[in-house]
Deep mutational scan, measured.
Amino acid sequence: QAPETKIVDKSRVACDGGEGALGHPRVWLQIPEDTGWVECPYCDCKYVLKGSKADAL
C-alpha cells in the first residue's frame, strides 16, 4: 500500500507510525523551507507543509 500523505500546519512534526504499539519509535521531523515536505525514515509517511510550494502540487 502507498505511504500516507499528511498536510500539516507546522514545519516540525512528530511521527510514531500512528498505530500505537504497532507503530515505530517517535521521531521529530523538520520540514525544509526549500522543499516544503519531509518523509518519515521509518514508515515513509510524507508530511507536506500547508501553503508551501509542495502543497500546491
Rank of each mutant, 00 (worst) to 15 (best):
K10R: 10
Y47K: 03
K10L: 07
K53F: 08
I7H: 07
A2T: 12
Y47H: 05
A54F: 07
K50P: 08
E33M: 08
D34A: 09
Q30D: 14
V27C: 06
D55L: 00
P25Y: 05
V8H: 04
K50M: 10
G20A: 11
D9Q: 05
A56W: 14
S11K: 08
V48H: 01
D9E: 13
T5D: 08
Y47V: 04
D44C: 14
G23M: 11
L49P: 08
G20F: 06
V8R: 02
A14I: 09
A2E: 13
T35P: 10
K50T: 06
P41E: 04
Q30L: 11
E19Y: 11
K53A: 09
A21E: 12
E19G: 14
K53C: 08
G17K: 02
C43V: 03
A2N: 12
S11H: 10
P41I: 04
K50S: 09
V13K: 00
T35D: 08
E39L: 14
C15T: 00
K10N: 12
S52I: 04
D34H: 09
W37E: 06
C45W: 15
K50C: 11
K50V: 09
E4Q: 14
A21C: 00
D34I: 07
C45N: 15
G17C: 05
E39P: 00
C43A: 00
G18A: 09
A14T: 07
E4M: 15
R26N: 06
C40T: 07
K50N: 08
D9Y: 14
E19N: 10
A2G: 12
A54I: 08
L57G: 12
D44Q: 15
H24S: 01
C15Y: 00
R26K: 08
V27M: 04
I31L: 01
A2V: 12
C43W: 06
W28H: 03
E33R: 07
E19S: 10
P32C: 07
L22A: 11
G51A: 04
D34F: 05
A56M: 13
A21Y: 10
D9M: 11
G51W: 02
A2W: 13
V38G: 00
P25S: 13
C15W: 00
I31Q: 02
R12C: 14
Y42M: 14
Q30N: 10
V13A: 00
V48D: 02
L57N: 12
Y47E: 08
V13S: 00
E39F: 15
L49H: 04
D34M: 05
G36H: 02
P41C: 07
C40H: 07
A14H: 10
V27W: 02
H24I: 02
C43E: 01
K10V: 13
K53P: 12
P32F: 03
T35L: 12
V13L: 08
R26L: 12
K6L: 13
E39D: 09
P32Q: 06
D16G: 04
A54E: 07
V38K: 03
A56C: 07
G17F: 02
L29H: 03
G51T: 05
Y47L: 09
C45V: 15
V27E: 02
E33Y: 09
Y42S: 11
P3Y: 14
V8E: 05
V48K: 01
T5K: 07
L57E: 13
S11L: 12
P41R: 03
D16W: 05
G17A: 04
P3M: 14
I7G: 01
Q30A: 07
C43P: 00
I7V: 11
D16T: 13
